[in-house]
Amino acid sequence: MIKATNIQKFYGELQVLKGVNLHIKKGEIISIVGASGAGKTTLLQILGTLDTQTDIENSSLEINNIEVTNLSDKDLAKFRNEHIGFIFQFHQLLPEFTALENVCIPAFIKKAPKEKAESRAKELLDFLGLSHRHNHKPSELSGGEQQRVAVARALINSPSIIFADEPSGNLDSESADNLHKLFFELREKFGQTFVIVTHNAELAELADRKLVMVDGNITKSDQEVLDNTIVE
């Protein structure tokens, strides 16, 4: 599913990632934890193709058996739209659009027919308990509801991988618990792989594997597990 080898990232002379190796199997829910500044979000952005590693010649990133570093910008954008979904801490919903319209945006980018996109969006919103919120704008939704709209948006194109960066960090405890349970329900229903950066200890422990980042790399104990992982 995901095979990252020797992922490095420099910002000027500061090395944020120091040769990360990572194998993730299809259908896994992986949590990535660590202190602020350990490189978690940078790693997530590179795995999600929102950013690129510094030393591409001596590293590789395969997603669904495709070496994404070999793709042109246009092909990479298409790949990201079709294969990857994102959930962010602050939702990133467009305030002028309704919940339904926000969910449809990735499908419209994919050039899906309007009727098909809206039908799929309604199905997802209904599944997430938002059947009565289709036509409400973000300002009319609670924090938990906004985050579920963001989850629906991430799922609209049926991506194989969902990357989430502190998805429950801006939610109250009840909404956070509901969101955590939802990830596992989605994995069972749709078969997605989840890679989640989180400071939430409960969510981190619920994951199939918890990866600990320290000073730009995954700790040795977790690396030994990864080296013995069969990649699908």
Rank of each mutant, 00 (worst) to 15 (best):
A35N: 14
A35S: 14
S36E: 11
A38T: 06
T41G: 10
T42S: 11
L43Q: 04
L43T: 02
L43F: 00
L43M: 08
L44Y: 05
Q45D: 11
Q45T: 13
G48M: 08
T49V: 12
L50K: 06
T52A: 11
Q53R: 05
T54D: 02
T54N: 05
T54K: 02
D55C: 13
S59D: 07
L61W: 03
N64T: 09
I66N: 04
E67T: 03
L71D: 09
L71P: 01
S72Y: 13
S72E: 15
D73H: 07
D73A: 05
K74E: 15
N81S: 13
N81K: 11
I84F: 11
F86S: 06
Q89A: 13
Q89P: 14
F90M: 13
H91N: 07
Q92M: 01
L94S: 06
L94E: 06
L94F: 14
P95V: 14
E96R: 15
T98H: 13
E101F: 13
E101Q: 11
N102H: 13
N102L: 12
C104E: 09
I109E: 05
K111V: 01
A112K: 10
A112M: 11
P113D: 10
P113N: 02
P113K: 14
K114P: 01
E115Y: 11
K116I: 07
E118I: 00
A121D: 02
K122N: 01
K122C: 00
K122W: 04
E123L: 11
E123S: 10
L124M: 11
D126M: 03
F127P: 03
L128P: 02
G129E: 02
L130K: 05
S131L: 01
N135Q: 13
N135T: 05
K137V: 03
P138T: 00
E140T: 03
S142L: 02
S142R: 04
G143H: 07
G144K: 01
Q147H: 15
Q147W: 14
V149W: 03
A152S: 10
A154V: 12
L155Y: 02
S158Q: 10
P159I: 07
S160V: 10
A164Y: 09
D165Y: 04
D165I: 15
D165V: 12
D165E: 09
D165A: 12
E166A: 12
E166F: 07
E166D: 07
P167I: 02
